[in-house]
Simulated scan of single mutants.
Amino acid sequence: MTGTARPITLVGEPVLHRPCADVETFDDALAELVDDMFASMYEANGVGLAANQIGVGLRVFVYDCPDEDGVAQKGVVVNPVLEMPEHRHLDDSEEGCLSVPGPHAPLARPDRAVCHGFDVTGAPVTVEGTGLLARCLQHETDHLDGKLYIDRLAKRVRKRVLAEMEEMRAERETVA
């Protein structure tokens, strides 16, 4: 695998809380960014990663995530536009985030999603997701819009998740 793992940007960093800019140039620098994003995602044991999660404010995400049938789907979407199918059901599974390390919380999301965009060369792509992949497409697109999954939680649950994250961070620092 090529690419260099970069540090994951954590909740509170400004780049995570503002919309990302559209990619306008499909060049070697973009390909290198995508390679680094895959390396960073794998290093952190994630199934998806948005560019702003490694501090880059561009509309790009990568994924390597199973669909509802357990089949691994892998790819990149540049300048994604999410389309929610008319007929869908809510899945209230737990969700977590590499930028909010540790805790997870139930979050209802549609069980199907379609994402349109481009690949690293600028060719159009459409990714249809079910199960965890549908959640991943929505989660990563949210990142690029400046939203974290915790922004969709009830205030009380959001506070609990952030407190758990801080407790876990303090425990790791004590052990180190």
Rank of each mutant, 00 (worst) to 15 (best):
L90W: 15
A170S: 12
E173C: 00
L153C: 03
R109F: 09
R160M: 06
A170T: 13
N45Y: 11
M165K: 14
Y63D: 04
P85C: 06
R152I: 00
M37D: 06
D151I: 07
V71Q: 12
E32A: 13
E32P: 00
R59P: 03
V175M: 04
H143Q: 08
L58V: 15
V175Y: 01
T121G: 05
A134S: 08
V23H: 09
C65R: 08
K74W: 03
I54T: 10
L98G: 05
Y63W: 06
S99H: 07
V34R: 11
G48V: 11
A170C: 03
A72N: 12
H143V: 03
G12R: 13
A44Q: 12
S99N: 10
Y63H: 13
G117E: 04
T130W: 02
A72C: 01
G96T: 02
L30D: 12
V81T: 15
R109H: 11
T130D: 00
A51D: 08
E166Q: 12
C97W: 14
L133M: 07
F118D: 00
R172C: 01
T4G: 00
V60N: 10
G102E: 06
A134G: 01
D111C: 12
L33A: 13
V60H: 11
H87L: 10
F61D: 05
S40P: 10
D142M: 04
G117Y: 04
V161N: 04
T141Y: 05
V62P: 07
A105N: 09
M168R: 10
L148G: 00
M41D: 08
E167P: 00
R172H: 11
P106Y: 04
A31I: 01
H87R: 10
R109W: 10
G3F: 07
L10I: 13
G75K: 03
E83Y: 14
A21L: 07
H139N: 08
P80A: 14
G102H: 02
H104F: 15
D145T: 06
H87A: 13
D69V: 01
D27F: 03
R152A: 08
L153F: 10
E140K: 01
K147R: 15
E43Q: 15
F61L: 09
G3N: 03
D36W: 09
D151F: 07
D36F: 02
G102M: 04
F118H: 12
V34Q: 13
N45I: 12
D64A: 15
V34H: 12
V56E: 07
V34M: 10
